[in-house]
Design a protein around this nucleic acid. Structure first.
Lengths: 352, 352
DNA sequence: CTGAAAGCGCTAACAA
DNA sequence: TTGTTAGCGCTTTCAG
């Protein structure tokens, strides 16, 4: 059976139905001024009656906007996360924040993957820009600070947002206040009576690693708890590095009763170290994690954690890009998105 | 600073560079016949030299294809999953399978959400079709068997695929062999020496629930283990229903030493019941789950499970749609995608 | 095998 | 405040 595709309703039909020109219909659709209310109402009626929906491709081709926001993620990491099936929900949170925000404005978010480390990054992104003409691009780590990508986007005059970056540079930068987050985490433990509090940092390649250490140190200093460098372990976000760092902290003569760890993987490692040493969590050792990915709900005990507001950051990115008039990419102060300390079972009073 | 958007490379430039007409370039790009190899090579060189990438909007507007596949999910369930952050990776697996497969063919997959239960489903999808003109639509449960949606898509002559459905009807249906999966799970337990094997079914609203019970019964029968109806508990995929069903099974005079459960949530519940009854898993009770979502890796012990091949099903859907010539939506036999029994720690020899 | 013409559905620039 | 005229970049006829 060969069904013929029904001829779609175009702006022409609406114009005819309403007895106005194409242009007037276009103006009404796009909420442009200079249309009398009567006419506007007539057009809107016609639109509703015919069930007219503007065609995206035609809109893009004729006009200057595509109503498309392109979100870019690192291919290898993303695909690996999907394949592993360990519940990393970075992409989901991006969709949650980005798609819904785009939809609010009649935009669509298209999600794509690019190879960060390949020499083809530029070609890949260039191709996507040429094919899609997105009105804006959302960059995530590690793309957010990639000079090649930023250069290309700038040269192409495509507005872009950099999530998780506070580096100066073109485009909108959107991040959480990592220093403040570490500070809040530290204060939480201090509030529970802890005096010896350890910190396991993330990879130095990420600016946020340093910021978190600073926040921790600031809170410790403010509480008069000193600044014992042995309490700061160095990790690289991997489980194994967490193991090593936690082990080192626990082996101290005067070990911490609370540890703040820079991501969920390393926190899981810390839990494992505690178990091996017969330290009950949180009775003997309190632990706070960073990121708050799904796994924190399934560990025993569930982890108290600072969440990474990926959905909110992506939503903000989409919003800024949609607002931005194409071509105008003036430097702006970074958007700082609020985070939350989610208290679960891994923290408790000292000596609980 | 106001950068001007560089004038993009169009098919015209390529034609000029290669010294041929637009049509010839178009033919080469689209791999159409009737172009001499010499000319084809010349055009390809020009494309490479200029870095030409065809514009999607123009392609769609001029031609009959949009190079877009639209994947539709239920809005409420999807958004709830994202908000809960419990690691459900259905969407991720769809992207993994669908996006990558589309990319292989120069297509793009666009992911959207629609309200199943609203009266607006039809309007929503119609709007998406009008705006996007996708070359195909991928439906997931519960849309896969929604007659309104299927009717609309059929009327619009848009090829579509229904994931997780084996119901007859228009469009491609793509599913896994649930009966066989349950059978394999049952055989796995039988192979471990289990004789009393329980089964907790899912909601009767899903055809797959019945199929799984049948597969289980078939395996039991084939092994001469009879067909004790008390061994089949009825759940509805919720944690609580799993609790009740598992409790009932364990309370039998002659309780099972192995239980197969129709999804991960109910299996987690079964684990909890076992713990409450001081049954060690897998020593006293073996458990096999269905779905294999990320959570199975984090439970104690990790769950042996039948995976749901979402990525493979979505990839298959994309493939079929891309192949399908628009307009020709002849009934086809369902595509059955292979599943896997992933053995982890929740199953062991009887009386292990 | 190749090219010329027409138009897809819309918006931008201009005219009225 | 409204309408008219050109395209946007491509693919589809249909000629050659």
């Amino acid at each position: 059976m060969q069904t013929t595709r029904p001829r779609p309703v175009t702006i022409k039909h609406v114009a005819a139905e309403a007895g106005v020109s194409l242009q007037t219909v276009s103006r009404v659709i796009n909420n442009e001024p200079n249309v009398r209310d009567v006419v506007k109402a007539r057009v809107k009626d016609a639109v509703a009656k015919l069930g007219y929906v503007p065609n995206l491709a035609a809109r893009r081709l004729g006009g200057s906007r595509s109503y498309l926001i392109l979100a870019l993620n690192d291919r290898d990491r993303t695909v690996e996360g999907w394949r592993l099936g360990e519940g990393t929900d970075w992409v989901d949170q991006m969709l949650l924040g980005g798609m819904l925000k785009c939809a609010e404005h009649g935009y669509r978010m298209l999600f794509e993957l690019v190879d960060t480390h390949s020499e083809h990054v530029e070609r890949e992104i260039f191709a996507a820009l040429s094919a899609l003409n997105p009105d804006g691009v959302i960059l995530t780590p590690p793309h957010s600070d990639n000079p090649i990508i930023i250069g290309l986007l700038t040269a192409q005059a495509v507005p872009f947002a950099r999530i998780g970056s506070v580096e100066d540079g073109a485009g909108f930068s959107i991040a959480m206040d990592d220093a403040r987050a570490a500070q809040v985490a530290t204060e939480h433990l201090i509030g529970l009576g802890h005096r010896r509090i350890g910190f396991i940092s993330g990879s130095d390649e990420y600016a946020l690693s340093g910021a978190r250490v600073e926040g921790y140190q600031a809170a410790m200093g403010a509480a008069g708890l000193g600044n014992d460098p042995r309490l700061v372990g160095r990790g690289d976000f991997s489980f194994d590095s967490g193991l090593a760092a936690a082990e080192a902290l626990c082996a101290l003569d005067d070990p911490p009763t609370g540890i703040i760890v820079s991501n969920d993987q390393m926190t899981l490692a810390t839990l494992q170290v505690a178990k091996a040493r017969n330290l009950a969590v949180p009775e003997d050792l309190s632990v706070i994690s960073f990121d708050d990915t799904p796994v924190v709900r399934f560990s025993v005990p569930p982890l108290t954690a600072i969440n990474q507001p990926i959905a909110a950051m992506t939503a903000r990115a989409a919003e800024l890009l949609i607002q931005a008039k194409s071509g105008a990419t003036e430097p702006q102060p970074p958007s700082i998105v609020p985070f939350e300390l989610v208290v679960r079972g891994s923290t408790g009073p000292r000596g609980g």
